[in-house]
Amino acid sequence: MTATVSNFHYGAVTPVASYLMACLGAALGLRCTTRSLRRPHRRAGWLALGAVSIGCGIWTMHFIAMIGFSVQDALVTYDPVKTLLSLAVAIAVVAIGVFLVGYRGGSPVNLGVAGTVTGLGVAAMHYLGMAAIQTNGGLHYDALTVALSVVIAVAAATAALWAAVSIHKLWASLGASLVMGVAVTGMHYTGMAAVSVHLTGQSAVSQSPTSLMSFLLAMLAGPLTVLLIAGAIVMFDPDMMLGDEDWDRPAYTPRDTGAGSPAHQPSQSSRPYNS
């Protein structure tokens, strides 16, 4: 018997909250990548923090959205090992993409490779998280809808990586994070549209919906704490308000003493690398 599946058991609460988490992770990741490009001596640390922020943002988006997932006449639980493994996958694949563009620049070829790897990894995180679901039935997927969700994941990852190395103004990066939130959340709900559940019998699961939510909230506590810490680090960093015009500003401006003065000499860009 095919069960009725809903992704909006609590109405608009879960999709809105999941979208905000995706935006938060993207915004922190973009700002961390900007810091890494300006501070090459600390590049690895900022890129790592950016990868963790984006990865945790995507993962928390997924499982906040899954709080609203329900199957009629069946209880749903999650395998904790697969759930945590999906978090590790999310962070690892985002780190690959972020470090590629952070150290090798934003050339079309490099962006294509990094975006594809990261997008496929994000899709793998999503479907690994789905594989953690335990219920009295089997999950089945529509192949074309799954393929569409993977395409969206790759496109979203590529756009996010391009924004990370190309957009440095604060308000522009915040706007980009809102767009990234739409793309990542859209990928999730596209993937969920591919799901159907075929029940095999009466539910033998004794867990209540309340305890299921408690489990998911406990899983979310760690990544949410990481995002709060990353947000505090970014907010208190002195370069938070830097924009593109600040990147090429000379460290000092000598007095104008004539055509031969240093003020008339070409200034060197302060960008730490050439993309």
Results as ranks from 00 to 15, higher is better:
T4L: 00
V5S: 05
N7C: 03
F8E: 11
A12V: 14
V13Q: 09
T14L: 12
A17K: 10
S18E: 01
S18R: 05
Y19Q: 07
Y19I: 10
M21C: 14
L24G: 07
L24Q: 09
A27V: 10
R31K: 13
C32D: 04
R42W: 14
R43Q: 09
G45N: 09
G45L: 13
W46G: 05
W46N: 07
A48P: 06
A48W: 06
L49M: 10
L49H: 04
V52G: 03
S53G: 09
G55C: 07
G57F: 02
G57C: 11
I58A: 01
W59H: 01
F63N: 00
F63E: 04
I64Y: 08
M66I: 12
I67Y: 04
S70G: 02
Y78V: 12
L85W: 12
L87Q: 11
A88Y: 02
V89Y: 00
A90W: 14
A95V: 10
I96G: 05
F99A: 01
L100W: 06
V101W: 03
G102W: 00
R104S: 13
P108H: 07
P108D: 05
V109R: 15
G112F: 13
T116L: 15
G121M: 08
A123F: 14
A123L: 13
H126L: 02
L128Q: 02
G129A: 12
G129N: 14
M130D: 08
A131R: 12
I133N: 10
N136G: 15
L139F: 13
A147K: 02
S149P: 05
V150F: 00
I152C: 03
V154F: 06
A155T: 01
A159H: 03
A160F: 04
A163Q: 03
V165I: 05
V165F: 02
H168Q: 10
K169M: 05
L170Y: 14
L170K: 10
G175A: 13
A176V: 12
M180Q: 14
V182C: 14
H188R: 02
G191A: 01
V195R: 04
T200L: 04
S203P: 13
A204F: 07
S206P: 01
S208I: 04
S208R: 01
S208M: 03
T210M: 06
T210K: 06
T210F: 08
M219S: 11
A221T: 14
A221V: 09
A221M: 04
L224T: 10
L224D: 00
V226A: 15
V226D: 02
L227M: 03
I229L: 15
I229A: 13
G231L: 05
G231N: 08
I233H: 04
P238A: 14
G243S: 08
E245M: 06
E245W: 06
D248S: 12
D248N: 15
R249F: 11
P250R: 03
A251D: 00
A251N: 00
Y252K: 06
D256A: 05
T257W: 10
S261D: 12
S261Y: 06
P266M: 04
P266H: 09
S269R: 01
P272D: 05
Y273W: 09
Y273K: 11
N274T: 09
N274M: 01
N274G: 07
N274Q: 10
